[in-house]
Design a protein around this nucleic acid. Structure first.
Lengths: 144, 144
DNA sequence: CGGCATCCGAATAGATACTG
DNA sequence: CAGTATCTATTCGGATGCCG
């Protein structure tokens, strides 16, 4: 009844949503949330999406702007995003060939909730860092 | 100028945010977004958070309600969430002992942007599934 | 009941070399 | 330039067993 009181102020939609997933057996193939988290949650996807949000970019440019990514992982990340319809791929028959990637409307639209999440992360990062330091000092066990 | 036009309608805040990360060198330790994605993006965290959003739960109950999770992974997930201050742990000295987990106010607050993301996923899952089927049929290469 | 410690196979991702 | 292919190092996660 203490600090959980904040939870009951949450939209009941969240509870509804969980029960919805539960009813479907949480099957990863059928659960949209697990689907997109599998994609967004990996090491590089978010950075690639953000880089493309700034402007369309070519493969080599993405290599330069996304720090430390390998060609292998960039290719894989782009393929998965293209497969999901979040980005489109445009080949120009120049020599040497150039390939440009850009966000699709769908890819653009996902940036909105992602931006909200980024805002939350920014706003609460200090709290998290503090909690971590506390926990690591052995004082963090909430109820020891 | 075609389907990227939607992107330039996005709040410039996204571009700003990316450049912000860029300026900090994308250091994962200092980038809040990469921090929380590392946590949220793993296999179980989201499901545990959602389960706790419904109501506070004990360890054994979480085992039952989160499908297929092992004790090992549940423990690890709970520890990391506790360390980050998103959940609290409450020990009751009964016999046998019982331990209850509940969302902290911080943990509650993150559910809001996560719910927005879940809503997006729900609303666009059909588009994604369609795009995947198209791609897998070999018709998907956007510009071949 | 609620863990922790250990082991091991599976999945991930980096490095490197080669190609149209 | 924009990839593909292969190999290897690391990480992740499931199974098992033990304990207060």
């Amino acid at each position: 009844m203490n600090d959980f009181s904040a939870a009951i102020a949450l939209p009941a939609a969240i509870t509804t949503q969980f029960k919805d997933w539960e009813a479907r057996g949480f099957d990863a193939d059928r659960c949209p949330m697990r689907n997109i988290l599998d994609r967004i949650g990996d090491k590089w996807t978010m950075l690639v999406l953000m880089a493309l949000a700034v402007e369309p970019r070519r493969f080599g440019m993405l290599m330069r702007v996304v720090p430390d990514i390998s060609k292998r992982m960039l290719t894989q990340t782009l393929r998965l995003l293209e497969r999901d319809g979040l980005i489109t791929r445009h080949v120009f028959a120049t020599t040497p060939p150039s390939v440009e990637y850009r966000l699709s409307p769908l890819g653009c639209s996902v940036l909105e909730p992602l931006h909200a999440l980024a805002q939350w992360a920014e706003a609460n990062f200090a709290s998290i860092t503090f909690a971590r330091a506390r926990y690591d000092d052995g004082l963090g066990r909430t109820d020891p």
